[in-house]
Design a binder for these strands. Structure first.
Lengths: 218, 218
DNA sequence: ACACTATTCCATAGATCTTTGGAGGATGAG
DNA sequence: CTCATCCTCCAAAGATCTATGGAATAGTGT
């Protein structure tokens, strides 16, 4: 085997990770897994995939060792293989955002505008320290349980309109969800504002919070 | 267009970057471009690709906006679209290295062993400050010209055996090349040691040097 | 205008990836 | 032991990607 072939072999190995990141559906799965471990059926439903298709995508992620599995009775739980995987995923999105104009267009189309200036992680920590704010986690219950911002209240988006009474009537509310490209907090802020609440959202979400090594409650 | 379709659209946009990184040959091209701008013919030769094949790969990189082009007379010069692209590339290799056992195997097979403990960037800077070391850049001439470690001497690997006399006979020599997976410095150290020189190599190379924001001479 | 160089575009064949149903394997409940 | 559940494996069709030569284009020098 010549030098050239050995070099090709090495770079083809690197490309295994690239190939794993080369499908929008697999990136959706990674986005979900960044919130915590999940079983196949739930991932398939959340990513709008057939069960076998989701399983196949998860296999390619597993063959690239970006995710790991463990069995819990009859279910198989997938999770990210490490913090560096979440970091790579986040950076890929950042590169896409800053270099591809279409990403910004797709982002605005998908997330819409909530009419307010989002707060940064630093600002949120200041506000929380002064206890002048209600931090609201609008992700599904299990994702909140897997780790959330300390002091945050959990009201999944699909229960929010029925549970408005649980939120203080006049204080400021900051909603957050999975990450910078998650629609839940945007929807929550729109809903809260429509009910006259003083609501804004965190500029990003739990993914970036974890990567910044900020405190997490579980 | 429903919410689900908009989400798919957004993640498919992210996947454009992933797809660009999904081929070993394109990663080789990025590795070369991380050293500085180059024309198509030279890239094709260095990556062992046909001219039209190289051009096609470069087009896909350009459509993902990971590289940009400028014309210089009759030639078209490609370069990385930004520092964040080099960073993403480096992190992809790190994730591959730490999660895929095959990468380590392919690395050892390709690079081989030079018999010495490589020095870190920090150590090299200490040595250079004390002027007890010759820093040797063994990359091709043009890559040295595009930016190198301050104080480094340029002797491309394929000229090294004829130009040994230019190196001090007894002092320590630290060789470096493109990055952590570049074979040139390994080969240089083996050659120098075979001639009785006190040679080691930098643990990584110019790619990581740039990303660490260390000083660069041009 | 003409020849010349460097690169991109185009058509195509072969390889690889995605999606899908159905079969089969592992686990837990009755 | 049998059944139900959850998931993976397998096979096949359709879609997409890669590599390749030949034609077309953009720029240079005479």
């Amino acid at each position: 085997m010549g030098d050239r072939q050995r070099k090709t072999t090495l770079f083809d190995q690197f490309a295994r990770v690239g190939k794993a990141l080369a499908s929008g559906k697999r990136l959706e799965l990674l986005d979900l897994l960044a919130q915590g471990e999940r079983d196949v059926a739930s991932l398939a439903a959340a990513a709008d995939l057939g069960l076998t298709t989701a399983s196949a995508h998860l296999q390619t992620l597993r063959q690239a060792n970006l995710v790991t599995t463990r069995r819990d009775g009859t279910r198989v739980l997938y999770s990210l293989a490490g913090r560096d995987v979440a970091d790579l995923f986040a950076r890929l999105r950042e590169v896409a955002q800053s270099h591809l104009p279409d990403v910004e267009a797709a982002r605005v189309t998908y997330l819409g505008d909530d009419g307010g200036r989002p707060v940064t992680r630093d600002e949120l920590q200041q506000l929380a320290k002064a206890e002048t704010v209600t931090v609201l986690d609008v992700r599904p219950r299990e994702e909140y349980a897997a780790g959330h911002i300390p002091g945050a209240v959990s009201i999944p988006l699909d229960e929010l309109s029925k549970r408005l009474a649980e939120l203080p009537g006049d204080g400021q509310i900051v909603a957050y969800c999975r990450g910078a490209y998650c629609v839940l907090a945007h929807d929550a802020v729109r809903l809260l504002r429509a009910h006259g609440r003083d609501a804004t959202r965190l500029a990003d979400g739990m993914l970036e919070w974890r990567l910044a090594d900020l405190p997490i409650a579980a």
